[in-house]
Write a protein that binds this DNA or RNA. Structure first.
Length: 192
DNA sequence: TATTGGATCGCC
DNA sequence: GCGATCCAATAG
């Protein structure tokens, strides 16, 4: 059974959403093609007082999606060559989001291999930049409605094992917060 | 207007 | 370990 998650899911506390997303499926339907993968790693960025969040210094043209309604995609470009995909959470006006850090590829694997120019399964989507490249995610999806038909999350009834929480990766400030979550033992997590 | 450094990746 | 390569954010 497949159930598309509705907006009320994203309105919950960001830490809850970050954990609940593990084991759910990210689905992208474009040009008659379906790409999907099981989410196995996430990170939370919460509120105006989280120094690692783009929202820390207030609203700007780039991060304004984070301040809007829950259940929308926040996609940004960084390091001159990578995109990162986030889901906006909590009520409008409160800036928070969940970064999708790793997927286990499900549908469209051959297309992902082409986009990644890499045929090694474990390298396809084991990182936030990698999964955006594999699924063709770029800033045209910034602000996309996750309750729409192009990009959404499905509960397919997958069972996951133990959830591990650690410090977040690739940031200098706010490291102490254990806001990274992943499925223990999954081969697609971004780091050991 | 100029400068700086980043929620990364892949090669050396 | 480090370079690639763009652009948002900040300082001047």
């Amino acid at each position: 059974m497949k159930r598309k998650l509705n907006r009320s899911f994203y309105r919950n506390s960001t830490l809850e959403v970050a954990k609940e997303l593990l084991g759910k499926y990210l689905v992208i339907k474009r040009n008659g093609k379906i790409l999907s993968g099981k989410i196995v790693e996430t990170e939370a960025y919460i509120g105006p007082d989280d120094p690692a969040s783009h929202a820390y210094r207030g609203i700007t043209p780039r991060n304004k999606i984070m301040f809007g309604k829950p259940g929308y995609a926040y996609v940004y470009f960084t390091y001159g060559m990578h995109h990162c995909l986030n889901f906006v959470t909590e009520k409008a006006g409160f800036p928070a989001a969940v970064l999708i850090r790793a997927l286990e590829p499900e549908e469209g694997i051959e297309i992902m291999k082409m986009k990644r120019k890499n045929s090694k399964m474990e390298e396809l989507t084991s990182g936030p930049g990698k999964l955006c490249m594999a699924m063709g995610i770029n800033r045209t999806l910034n602000g996309a409605d996750l309750c729409g038909k192009i990009i959404f999350i499905e509960d397919r009834g997958a069972k996951i094992g133990t959830i591990v929480s650690t410090n977040r990766i690739g940031i200098n400030l706010g490291k102490k917060r254990k806001w990274r979550f992943y499925v223990e033992g999954n081969r697609y997590i971004s780091r050991k």
